[in-house]
Structure formats: C-alpha cells, structure tokens
Simulated scan of single mutants.
Amino acid sequence: MKLIIGNKNYSSWSLRGWLACKQSGLHFDELTVPILGEDWEHVKTSTSDLAPSQGKVPILWDGDAVVWDSLAIVDFLADKVGRDRFWPKDDAARAMARSMVAEMHSGYLALRRTLPMNVRKRLTLPGVPEDVRDDVVRILTLWAEARARFGQGGPFLFGTFGAADVFYAPVVSRFLTYGIGVPGFAQAYMQAVWEHDWMQQWIAAAEAEDWVIEQYEMPEE
C-alpha cells in the first residue's frame, strides 16, 4: 500500500489517514507532498497518484484500489484486517465511537477554521470566539462520557487506541498548540495520545520539515 499525505506540521486529515494505516498493522509506504506550497498547483496536476482525489490528501493506494478521505480509509482498512482493530467490540461503545468519529469528520468547523493544526507552534491566546468555545465544550463533553462509560481498559477514549483516537488526535495537537485549558481527565488523555509512539514519530517528522505555510502561522500576540 502507498499513502499520500500532506505536510506533517499542518495536515490534520493526513495525520488521521497515517494513524489509521499504522493502526491496521499493514505495511505501507508514504509519500509526502508539500500542500499549498509555491508549486502546489503544479504538483496537484502533475502527480498521477493524486488525480482520483483532485489533489486532496490523504489518499491510499492498494494495488488498483484507491481510497481518499480519512474516514473511507479507516473503513477500507477495517475491511481488510477486521473491525475490532479499529472499533470497540461492545455494541454501545462501538455506537458511540462511530458517532464521535462521524461528528469529528463533519463538524467542529469553527475550531478547524480558527485554530489550524500547527504541531510546531505554542501560542497563548487571549481568548477564543464563542463558536470555537462551543466546539471545545462539545468535544470535552464527548471525551468525558467516553472515558467514564468505556475507558476502563486503558488511557484512551474507549480504553485501547482505536478509530476515535485516530480522529481526535489532531484536536489534541490543536489544544496543545493554542493553550486550550482542559480539565484533568482531558489532560491525562491528551498526554496519552501525545506520547503514543506513532504520534511521537509524526511529531518528530513535523519538526524536521523546513517549509512554512504562512496562512497557518499565527502571530504570537
């Protein structure tokens, strides 16, 4: 398999696709393309592997099969290796995990727009807009319920690392970047995600990147 991803410092959806591939346990090669760089328009049109997704990342190739969109990648990989690798076995837990992933996939637009992922940055914001605060409260509420109801088996949302953690990992990064205050249980969860071996690999690669996308860089003040 081959996974095509964007800049590791900025591309939250690429992180999800990459973590999903790691979670599958299957071997994959990765190709990083410099999204939104000076030659991005040329890269999009000249890289045949990107054609099916019209330049959107992540995109996963498995022989002749091509899958774009991070949620589709999770579903495709779960079909290959078994859903239990990604989703809780318990029906109630699995229902909540799937709903949380779907909500992350389609929602929290204010959070995404206002606080873009930037792994390398650490900022102190004087405050956040009300719509962003509403997204943060909603996320923390879901995290609290998942941990209270189904998190007894480990430090992650449903105990062991799975699809829900794959999808909320970029949120963890955003909360750390922008100094979003969270309660103790969320701090512990975020630490578990941040210190996960795969996240540490991604972070190290993001810090080693030498390109900067100015629209995702925010002033210190």
Score class of each variant (00 low, 15 high):
1 M>Q: 10
2 K>F: 02
8 K>D: 04
16 R>I: 09
18 W>P: 00
29 D>R: 10
30 E>T: 12
34 P>I: 00
35 I>P: 11
37 G>A: 10
48 S>E: 12
52 P>D: 02
57 V>H: 05
58 P>F: 02
66 V>L: 06
66 V>K: 10
72 A>M: 04
74 V>Y: 08
80 K>V: 03
83 R>K: 11
86 F>C: 03
88 P>M: 01
89 K>T: 15
91 D>I: 10
95 A>E: 09
97 A>M: 04
104 M>Y: 12
106 S>I: 07
108 Y>F: 15
111 L>P: 01
111 L>I: 05
114 T>K: 14
123 L>T: 07
128 V>I: 10
128 V>R: 05
131 D>E: 15
132 V>A: 06
136 V>E: 00
138 R>P: 00
140 L>W: 03
140 L>Q: 14
146 A>N: 08
148 A>W: 00
153 G>F: 01
158 F>T: 04
159 G>F: 03
160 T>C: 05
161 F>C: 00
165 D>L: 04
166 V>D: 04
171 V>F: 13
172 V>I: 11
181 G>S: 11
181 G>H: 07
181 G>F: 00
183 P>L: 04
186 A>L: 04
191 Q>M: 12
191 Q>A: 15
193 V>W: 12
196 H>Q: 14
203 I>K: 08
205 A>W: 09
208 A>Q: 13
211 W>E: 14
215 Q>E: 14
221 E>S: 14
